[in-house]
């Protein structure tokens, strides 16, 4: 059973993937996200940190046995158990499919849309409109897939659900207001099911769905 | 042992990952990349294709048993064997780490630099210069890691080597001229070792390293 420390800044959706996975597997995970254990921008630029995690990125995982790992998908996978990784070769492949899907299809448009509403990026009307269209396409694919399914892979929560749900966390909280998400009821049903699992709740707390689409915060 | 068909356009570095993995595992893979088996832009927009592969993207894999998979990392993983996936939990996690590294750290700057030289995109001087700097940083990380290692994970080829090498294929062929790659000799040593493995050669053929950095192809 894995045991170690996850270095991250607070409220990092990438770290949530690993934290939720650890809830399912029982891996013992200490979170180092605030001073003195970890100060983002300082600790991750120190020679000691960079010798273990050469990119200086977080989340970064160090096992109590000294095993070091970066890249959130790898950490989440390591802290999982076989049940949520996918217990057959086909299930495991499908899990990886949705993990890749989250990174390549959801994160770019989700970030492009959400970041300006958080005031951490300049607003660009064209970029936002394009991001909305891309996210609609992504939600349509998910909605169709979840038409007859409770979870993304198999009949129980897997790393696919954890990863995709975490990648949709900011969109669902910030911009996917009721009228926008209305055409994708299966996705919302699935998302609400996920975030209400005890293992998700232990990490995310209460997740309140967007009531009104946030706009650019200057 | 997996057996199926990989739909792709020809010379697709993403498809190469899966094809090389299949060479290692012995999975029987038919490549559908040209007419009449597959015409990129037509076949992947057909209702039949989209019902199996809703994003319409390639590579896409259909097993002889009907099992369908998209996202190149998932396909490559499925067509691998346990040896190249990583035979211990830690090795498997490290493999996924480098696979994520390739997607998040290599592909964006590699695409920004190489696409204009292939005539795929317009040249943008600032984007190209930024891409060069990012790729230098990435190569430095790899060079340090490979200082005392022959392969990225463990003592033999893994999916990590296959994925990272395929993501560096266009850069090494097109833009990483001798003077640019001179500070990263371990990376070039490792890359040349990989592409000269019989399993790589069977898919890639002879890989000729860049002699002179390609410029924008209008």
């Amino acid at each position: 059973m894995a045991a170690g420390t996850l270095y991250t800044y607070p409220e990092n959706w990438r770290a949530f993937k690993a934290q939720i996975a650890a809830q399912y597997s029982g891996a013992r995970l200490k979170i180092a996200s605030t001073s003195p254990a970890f100060t983002f921008g300082q600790t991750n630029r120190s020679p000691a940190f960079l010798s273990n995690f050469p990119l200086g990125k977080v989340p970064a995982y160090q096992g109590d046995d000294g095993f070091c790992l970066f890249e959130s998908n790898a950490i989440a996978h390591y802290l999982s158990n076989d049940a949520i990784r996918g217990s057959t070769p086909q299930a495991a492949a499908r899990v990886l499919q949705w993990v890749s899907f989250a990174d390549s299809e959801i994160i770019p448009p989700a970030s492009a849309w959400v970041f300006p509403t958080l005031g951490i990026m300049q607003f660009n009307k064209q970029a936002t409109e394009q991001a909305k269209e891309e996210l609609k396409r992504v939600l349509a694919v998910l909605n169709q897939h979840l038409n007859t399914r409770t979870f993304l892979v198999g009949e129980r929560i897997s790393l696919a659900d954890i990863t995709v749900a975490c990648s949709l966390l900011w969109p669902y909280k910030q911009v996917l207001e009721p009228s926008f998400r209305q055409p994708y009821p299966n996705v919302t049903r699935w998302f609400v099911t996920c975030v209400n699992q005890p293992q998700f709740k232990a990490v995310l707390g209460e997740v309140k769905l967007c009531e009104k689409m946030a706009q650019f915060d200057a | 042992m997996a057996a199926g068909t990989l739909y792709t356009y020809p010379e697709n570095w993403r498809a190469f990952k899966a094809q090389i993995a299949a060479q290692y595992s012995g999975a029987r893979l038919k490549i559908a990349s040209t007419s009449p088996a597959f015409t990129f832009g037509q076949t992947n927009r057909s209702p039949a294709f989209l019902s199996n592969f809703p994003l319409g993207k390639v590579p896409a894999y259909q097993g002889d048993d009907g099992f369908c998979l998209f996202e190149s990392n998932a396909i490559a993983h499925y067509l691998s064997n346990d040896a190249i996936r990583g035979s211990t939990p830690q090795a498997a996690a490290r493999v996924l780490q480098w696979v994520s590294f390739a997607d998040s750290e290599i592909i964006p700057p590699a695409s920004a630099w190489v696409f204009p030289t292939l005539g795929i995109m317009q040249f943008n001087k600032q984007a190209t210069e930024q891409a060069k700097e990012e790729l230098k940083r990435v190569l430095a990380v790899l060079n340090q890691h490979l200082n005392t290692r022959t392969f990225l994970v463990g003592e033999r080829i893994s999916l990590a080597d296959i994925t990272v090498a395929c993501s560096l294929l266009w850069p090494y062929k097109q833009v990483l001229e001798p003077s640019f790659r001179q500070p990263y000799p371990n990376v070039t040593r490792w890359f040349v070792t990989c592409v000269n493995q019989p399993q790589f050669k069977a898919v890639l053929g002879e890989v000729k390293l860049c002699e002179k950095m390609a410029q924008f192809d209008a």
């Binding site: 990438r14 891309e134 | 592909i107 795929i120």
Partner: peptide, 30 residues
């Protein structure tokens, strides 16, 4: 938290590259 998020490396342009690649290879395939 927002400071960390602001420093995340996101490939915002990815769809533009995907589109260019798709268009190019569709052309290559006639």
């Amino acid at each position: 938290a927002l400071q960390g998020l602001a420093q995340e490396k996101i490939w915002f342009d990815k769809s533009r590259y995907d589109e260019a690649e798709r268009s190019f290879y569709e052309g290559e395939n006639g």
